[in-house]
Design a protein around this nucleic acid. Structure first.
Lengths: 220, 220
DNA sequence: TTTCTTTTTTAGCCTTGTCTAAATTTTTAT
DNA sequence: ATAAAAATTTAGACAAGGCTAAAAAAGAAA
């Protein structure tokens, strides 16, 4: 894989996690800071190589192979970030650009030894999980919003109670799968204030209990 | 600088150390495993950037800027080799290819921190010197052949005695500036057997004393 | 010095990855 | 349902870096 191919794959992987489903040409173009026409060319190539599923005008999805290759690139990126912070004492916010270069070095022996040298870390300095050498991810479990921490960024991933009036309530409050939310305050009775896209709303403990969230993962 | 430019610069640097003077297009082509016509294109580009002195049909020489840039690439290569051997416990003969990739990562902060992390090493695992952060080399001093070690590869760099009969003697024995020699045996009286291009000759201690040599540096 | 050989350069083409402009398809809004 | 808008693809071009074949220059030999 060329450098450009690797970068596209990684970008598409992250976008797919956000959009659930097909990733659009324009989204990729914006993400990669390039033109949509360039994206079309590249996704044709990646599709020919069996890394993407592509139907004209319909966006793309990673194949299992593509998903795995992308995961291994992210694995390398994150392991290098751990190295830069733990061993070379960079600050965690300085390492992205350097890791962006190091992630393209091709050598399985290198990355596996680096992994061992760092003590087989499970998370990078930003708290994001590091895939294993087969490109598998330890799934971050979903929790009830009731148990969420104040200040942490979460993504709504589902609900427990599915009665219609509850779903309608969520709809009215603009609480949908995929939205990001931050708990601002919790009261003594587990009711809380949560922030959803610049709006702060109050929800009862019943509502909090019935919403499933998952920690939001940063990308890189 | 692009990856290709960096590789050419490094190759030319090493060739220049061997040839003293201009480096020919064909020599570069062979070194870089490419065609002479491709080399011509590239040396024009590097010459336009002020990294090479180039006169058509006359070969190239590095400018001071070119020499410095090449030295910094070699510095990176060798520091990474130290890292791979000292920290990740690779064998010294396994690290070249990986360092070949790592040497192109662009970040002064990275390489300087790596240098510190490794304890500011002066030599890489092959025994070759590591240039400093300004691209300067610690000159390996010349010694009399009399003091040379058995088995080490040396390059003849000069003579002490310059009387004509001595020079004629050297000429007869094919001992010239630039030839490689290895001491095979030393006798109790400092006379010795030395190997010069597959021929082993015997020289007296007087001759050994009056020949200056320098350790041969490997390339990478 | 003139010819032959070797080296180097030029000319023209290819691939990768990018771009702009135009065409086409899909989506949105009336 | 159809027109307008947005998204996507196609067509054609370009720069980097490489190649082959042919031309030109330099060096060697007669």
């Amino acid at each position: 894989m060329t450098l450009a191919e690797e970068n596209y794959l990684k970008g598409i992987f992250h976008l797919q996690r956000e959009t659930k489903g097909e990733v659009s040409t324009n989204a990729i173009a914006e993400d990669m800071q390039t033109q949509p026409s360039s994206v079309t060319d590249m996704i044709k190539k990646l599709s020919d190589k069996g890394l993407l599923l592509y139907k004209k005008y319909k966006g793309v999805q990673l194949t299992e192979l593509g998903r795995q290759k992308a995961s291994l690139i992210i694995r390398k990126h994150r392991l290098w970030e751990v190295f830069l912070v733990d061993k070379l004492h960079f600050y965690w916010d300085e390492v992205h650009e350097i890791a962006e270069q190091l992630e393209h070095v091709q050598s399985d022996a290198l990355i596996n030894r680096l992994d061992a040298y760092l003590g087989y870390p499970n998370f990078d300095p930003h708290g994001d999980p590091i895939p294993d050498k087969n490109g598998n991810w330890t799934v971050r479990e979903k929790i009830s919003l009731k148990n969420a921490e104040i200040g942490t960024r979460y993504i709504c991933v589902g609900v427990k109670d599915t009665q219609q009036e509850f779903l309608r309530y969520l709809d009215k409050k603009n609480i949908q799968i995929g939205v990001e939310m931050i708990v601002m305050n919790k009261e003594f009775d587990d009711s809380m204030e949560i922030q959803i896209s610049d709006t702060v709303i109050f929800i009862s403990s019943f509502v909090a209990e019935n919403i499933y969230v998952q920690e939001k993962l940063d990308r890189n």
